[in-house]
Design a protein around this nucleic acid. Structure first.
Lengths: 361, 361
DNA sequence: CTGAAAGCGCTTACAG
DNA sequence: CTGAAAGCGCTTACAG
């Protein structure tokens, strides 16, 4: 069975009239009285064709409702104009914002976007590498996601030339060679922690992401570094996983509130978890920031309408998205090789609102 | 230029060693000492091939790192295994939840998902129809989105046989013929409004979506119907657009609070706007639900952690997503024709939390 | 069970 | 400027 219809179907179709037009370049050529090469040129390189011819062909195209078969074009041209972005969860408003930037840039360049969520997928690292090999995708954007180099279909050397760009978080070390666009997460987390310290907090806990994922690793590093510099202790049980979700963060917050040395401030590795944290503190009958201060990370659109509005670290999500996509396009166009593989650092900023105050005790 | 490399490139590649393997079915066949037809069979119909042959071919595949060229397969088979979903905004957590259901079902069936956002796209209705015609996509899911039948590439008759399924909201009348999976929005909005009325509210305003979009039209209809039945007046200025965004809703709320006959309850057409509404009321120094009650719609994951937790209408987002995708698959498999085009109604439910109370005045 | 061959719908040197 | 022809990498009747 090919995509074409057999004779019986075709008759049925004609009986029903006006189904999806099923017209190839050949029938347009026939109607216009030219070769298929000319039709192709009219569409792709109109400047290579006489005005007169172009008009004839144009007429035939309109008449037949012809639209080139994208499948055939992609095949022939050897590219799909599809790029895949791999991210932990599209549901996180921060990634939505980054995606918005990616889309904007993609539209400009004529790419469509395929999204793969590592939280909900069975896709392995190998599968991702295979995508490129089997040409399902012209390029890949890795947003705070695992390395696609599970085993070794691809040598370290060749990885450097692949159309892959990393965004938001460099996650694992074998990605270090790839071009990337991120804020300096370690530094940002330090700044966040230092702000809490500057307010007078000494008992500062942190809710990070997941044990297994490296997504919030750098933020944890920054927190630890700042605490160390300030010679503040991190008690056992002050560093707890929030699963990057509201419910996970609520659970984590409960544990923190029950701690024998209850922290006076909680630094959440992202705003999604900070929202859960905020709520759970209030459920426990405590106030924010009166009893406990809360600091987030990302500055998603909900942060400023929380009660109290969330103090957090702002990332230029849109800009990250656009830059990542632009770099990927450049890499694809250049073909393999000689790309600049530098890490681009974009600026973050501390957004001070009302969820952090001086400790009461 | 085809996708293949010219000789110079190839030399370079070999010099660099181990780039992306660029092996076609032909080289696998040669190495295995069989025809390309046999290689194809080993991959797609292994039962049609001797154990011995299969092993030989398997070995050659591993050796070469061969992976079939998806572009060629899609072209040959006449299908992409891509389906497109068109929705207002992937950033809305409600749609994210529906998408999750769609993805789950899609993965089962081997489809990948292309997302098109009508809020950020320049894509016209015609473009969407053209997708099908040019075979970029095997099918389309329309989530609360415009009709793809701008002008008339497709007759009404043929529309009924296209691989298109509608989800969440039936929006425009020319979509009535298409299969759909939605809650009964009019009824749900009535229920929401009636709940406010039952609490004793008489001055009930509504924040709907956008003038131009039909997305929240049914919800507005339900609100109007309930008000009418209860013989309650809708004052001029009580029905205001919130642009489906937090900031739009905040603006709308401000107008409502400044109204000479200030409403005691506000029904927001979705939770995203309700979140903005909640915040703006508090910014104005008023309390929820003490001074003003707020009712949402969708029950997104943030609803229950708002302050106060949001009373809203729950939609089974995941179920909607899965059912929509399943129906689309069936439609694609059946080929054109004889699909059931009925509207499937899934149940909604009123979720009572704390943002609605009796009016104080 | 296996192979030779046709063909999917395009694009693009290559001649003219 | 235009056409005839090759070829992209597969899949699938059709013979054997």
């Amino acid at each position: 069975m090919t995509g074409r219809l057999n004779d019986t179907d075709r008759q049925e179709e004609e009986a029903e009239a006006e189904d999806i037009p099923d017209v190839s370049i050949t029938v347009v050529a026939k109607i216009a009285g030219v070769s298929i090469a000319t039709v192709s040129r009219c569409i792709n390189n109109p400047e290579k064709v006489t005005e007169r011819t172009r008009l004839k062909v144009q007429k035939a195209i309109v008449e037949t409702g012809y639209s080139p078969n994208t499948l055939a074009q992609s095949f022939r041209r050897g590219r799909t104009n599809l790029i895949m972005v791999v991210l932990p969860s599209i549901g996180d408003p921060f990634f939505t914002a980054v995606m918005h930037g990616i889309r904007t840039a993609a539209r400009e360049k004529g790419y469509s976007i395929l999204i793969e969520e590592t939280q909900h997928t069975t896709m392995t690292a190998d599968d991702i590498g295979a995508l490129l090999v089997s040409r399902q995708t012209d390029g890949i954007i890795l947003l705070a996601s695992m390395s696609p180099f599970g085993t070794d279909i691809l040598s370290a050397k060749s990885r450097r030339r692949l159309p892959i760009v990393v965004g938001c978080e460099k996650v694992s070390s074998d990605l270090a060679d790839l071009p990337s666009v991120c804020i300096d997460s370690v530094d940002a987390a330090k700044e966040a922690t230092n702000y809490l310290i500057a307010q007078g907090h000494e008992r500062i806990a942190m809710i990070y992401g997941q044990e297994s994922s490296l997504l919030t690793k750098d933020r944890e590093l920054g927190y630890r570094a700042a605490m160390k510099t300030a010679e503040l202790k991190i008690r056992d049980g002050w560093l707890v996983a929030g699963q990057l979700s509201i419910s996970g963060a609520r659970q984590a917050t409960r544990e923190l509130l029950d701690h024998t040395e209850r922290p006076t401030a909680i630094f959440c590795a992202n705003d999604e978890m900070a929202i859960g944290c905020l709520h759970e503190i209030k459920v426990a009958g405590l106030t924010v920031p009166g009893d406990v201060s809360v600091m987030g990370f990302d500055d998603i659109r909900y942060a400023e309408v929380m009660d109290p509005p969330l103090t957090t670290i702002g990332q230029p999500a849109d800009e990250i998205g656009e830059r990542v996509m632009h770099r990927l396009c450049k890499r694809i166009e250049e073909g393999r090789g000689n790309g600049d593989n530098q890490a681009q650092i974009v600026p973050h900023k501390l957004v001070i609102r009302q969820s952090v105050a001086k400790p009461s005790s």
